[in-house]
Structures are given as structure tokens and as C-alpha cells.
């Protein structure tokens, strides 16, 4: 499984309140949530993001609330993958359950710039930066996580089983 897209770069501790502010949590509709994704730190995100694009950020991505609406909003906005040195633990679990690919790589987080084009191979964990011709190695997913992501999340995975 591979993904290719442009990078939206953010800093450390991107919290769930900026990923999807609580004022929009009176719905769980993915497209409605996607319409407000990242709006408190980047008002232009929703207008610029294209299917396949990626978020690269600093450590502790997704800290804060347990709202599954956060990975839902990111995924529904078209983001194919989030790369960060570390993820908050509830977000990590929710992202996998929602079938949103996430990779831990301090190297990529440090080297990648906003707007770079990346190609990510989820089988090998290899991240290729097509803009500056660099490669970074992240830990690949174990088999069962790959199957969850391929099944579009835990529900699809359980139903396939």
C-alpha cells in the first residue's frame, strides 16, 4: 500500500481541539467534520487539501480529548497519512480504528518542509521526499494493523473476519 501527496507541516502538540473544535462535535458526520478540520490553527487547510495529501507534525500529535471525530475529520478531508515523532495514545488508537494511516518518524518530522511532496510505502515504512530527494525510514505497520487500515478501519476488519 502506498500514498503520495503534498505536505501540510505543523508543530508540536497539535491537540484534538484544533484538529476539530468541540463546537462542531454535535455531529459525527465525516464530511461536516472535515469542513472544519484544523480551522483554529490553519484556516486555509480545508480549501487547500487534496486527496492523498499528508500531515507532518512535531511530537505528541493528537493530544487532548478522546474524540474519534479528530481522526475522522482528518481522514475525511482527504489526508492519506499523518507522520510525527510520537502520537498521543488515545489518538493513536483511534486513528488505527478509523483506518487513518499514521507513522512515527522523528527524522521525517525534522527534515520535511511544508509543501514537500512525499511518497510513503506502508509495507516497508519507507518515506521518500520527492521534492528534496531524501528518504526516511519509519517503523512499518505490523500485519494486523495493515489489514485494519486496508479494511478502512476496525469495523470493516471485524466484518471481514
Amino acid at each position: 500500500m502506498k500514498a503520495k501527496g503534498k505536505v501540510f507541516k505543523y508543530g508540536a502538540n497539535v491537540d484534538t481541539d484544533v484538529i476539530i473544535p468541540a463546537r462542531y462535535l454535535n455531529t459525527a458526520d465525516p464530511l461536516e467534520l472535515a469542513g472544519h478540520c484544523m480551522e483554529d490553527i490553519d484556516k486555509t487547510f480545508v480549501n487547500r487539501v487534496k486527496p492523498g495529501d499528508m500531515i507532518v507534525a512535531g511530537p505528541n500529535f493528537g493530544c487532548g480529548s478522546s474524540r474519534e471525530h479528530a481522526p475522522i475529520a482528518i481522514k475525511a478531508s482527504g489526508i492519506s497519512c499523518v507522520i510525527a515523532p510520537s502520537f498521543a495514545r488515545i489518538f493513536y488508537r483511534n486513528a488505527i480504528n478509523m483506518g487513518l494511516a499514521i507513522l512515527e518518524s522523528a527524522e521525517a518530522s525534522a527534515a520535511v518542509n511544508d509543501g514537500d511532496e512525499l511518497e510513503v510505502d506502508f509495507d516497508s515504512g519507507l518515506i521518500r521526499n520527492l521534492t528534496v530527494r531524501q528518504t526516511y525510514q519509519a517503523n512499518p505497520f505490523p500485519e494486523f494493523i495493515k489489514r485494519i487500515i486496508a479494511a478502512d478501519g476496525l469495523v470493516g476488519y471485524i466484518r471481514r473476519k
Binding site: S65, S66, R67, E68, I90, R93, N94, N97, G153, V155
Partner: peptide
């Protein structure tokens, strides 16, 4: 996420998302 509150009573408690 604040389910961890109950550790005060000597229990293990942690937050999860909606699918879990």
C-alpha cells in the same frame, strides 16, 4: 479522555475512542 480520574480510588481507568 478524563476517565483516568478513577485511579484515585486505586482502580485502573483510561480513555478510549468511540469504536473501542
Amino acid at each position: 479522555s478524563h476517565t483516568c480520574t478513577y485511579g484515585a480510588l486505586g482502580a485502573f481507568a483510561t480513555g478510549v475512542g468511540s469504536t473501542d
